[in-house]
């Protein structure tokens, strides 16, 4: 196994997540796709930690921090989503346009 396979897999997962963020109209699914993109980046970090030019444990530590921050992001994102749903009565991301000028 070499690193290119892992990097290619991470790129594919990131692209699928990016497509979901752009096209999904449901705000919950947009949050899901963001989580998928963060996971793809974590795969890159762990792959470089093992197969990089200078293998180091730092990649795994960064990945742990990234997971912690992603969990915080998911919690705050769901809280914002519930507050928005209470005010607007919908989860369609297109309807959240009250900040449009």
């Amino acid at each position: 196994m070499n690193i290119t396979s892992y990097l290619a897999l991470a790129a594919i997962l990131f692209s699928i997540g990016l497509y979901g963020v752009i096209t999904k109209r449901n705000a919950v699914m947009v949050l899901f796709s963001i989580e998928l993109m963060l996971n793809a980046v974590n795969i890159n970090l762990v792959a470089f930690a093992k197969y990089g030019i200078f293998p180091s444990i730092s990649g795994q530590v960064f990945s742990l921090f990234s997971i912690a921050i992603a969990a915080a992001e998911a919690a705050v994102g769901i809280a914002i989503l519930i507050a928005l749903y209470r005010n607007k009565g919908t989860v369609e991301a297109d309807k959240y346009n009250s900040m449009k000028g």
């Binding site: 989580e35 974590n42 792959a47």
Partner: peptide, 23 residues
């Protein structure tokens, strides 16, 4: 596979468990 068993456990706990349930 990438020699990160601790991260694998954390991934199952946080993502498959917590984040999925939160979503």
């Amino acid at each position: 596979l990438l020699d990160a068993p601790f991260l694998a456990v954390i991934q199952i706990l946080i993502y498959t468990g917590a984040v999925s349930i939160l979503m």
